[in-house]
Every structure is written in structure tokens, then in C-alpha cells.
Simulated scan of single mutants.
Amino acid sequence: MEAQRLLRHQGFDPGGVDGVIGPKTTRAVKRLQQKAGLPPDGLVGAQTWQVLRG
């Protein structure tokens, strides 16, 4: 849920904030990763958390 809230806060719509990493959340993560210059794998790893919590 934290990742979804942070995605939404940064302007990337993850769909509902429900703690489920579904297709909408995965797409939002990939868009964030692309914007941040990270490999867009859709996984919220250490580098993605750094960007989210920036």
C-alpha cells in the first residue's frame, strides 16, 4: 500500500490503493522507473523505493 500511495503522490495512477500489485500498479511502477532512468521491470526493488521515497 505504501508503494501505491507514493506512486499516486508522484502522479502515477496505480489504480486502487489496496496492497495488491496488479496490472495497473505494475504499469505505474514501470512508468516511474522509465522516468527515473531505471530498468522498467515493474518490480519495486531498492532503487525504485529510493525514487518513490525520494
Rank of each mutant, 00 (worst) to 15 (best):
residue 43 L to R: 15
residue 7 L to R: 02
residue 52 L to W: 02
residue 21 I to W: 08
residue 38 L to H: 09
residue 15 G to C: 10
residue 15 G to P: 08
residue 6 L to T: 08
residue 7 L to Q: 10
residue 35 K to F: 09
residue 54 G to H: 08
residue 21 I to K: 01
residue 43 L to S: 07
residue 54 G to P: 04
residue 25 T to P: 00
residue 19 G to H: 03
residue 24 K to N: 13
residue 37 G to F: 03
residue 16 G to Q: 10
residue 9 H to G: 12
residue 9 H to V: 10
residue 30 K to F: 00
residue 30 K to E: 13
residue 43 L to A: 14
residue 45 G to R: 08
residue 7 L to C: 04
residue 19 G to L: 06
residue 20 V to S: 06
residue 26 T to E: 14
residue 41 D to I: 03
residue 18 D to E: 04
residue 27 R to E: 14
residue 54 G to Q: 12
residue 14 P to L: 05
residue 7 L to E: 00
residue 19 G to F: 00
residue 39 P to T: 15
residue 4 Q to S: 08
residue 25 T to M: 03
residue 15 G to D: 04
residue 46 A to Q: 10
residue 53 R to W: 04
residue 22 G to E: 01
residue 9 H to M: 09
residue 38 L to V: 08
residue 42 G to A: 00
residue 52 L to K: 05
residue 34 Q to E: 14
residue 26 T to F: 06
residue 27 R to F: 00
residue 24 K to E: 11
residue 18 D to Y: 01
residue 10 Q to I: 10
residue 24 K to T: 05
residue 24 K to C: 02
residue 2 E to R: 15
residue 36 A to T: 04
residue 29 V to I: 14
residue 1 M to A: 15
residue 53 R to Q: 15
residue 2 E to T: 11
residue 20 V to P: 01
residue 26 T to I: 14
residue 33 Q to C: 12
residue 11 G to K: 06
residue 3 A to T: 05
residue 12 F to I: 13
residue 32 L to E: 05
residue 51 V to Y: 02
residue 45 G to S: 11
residue 15 G to R: 13
residue 15 G to L: 09
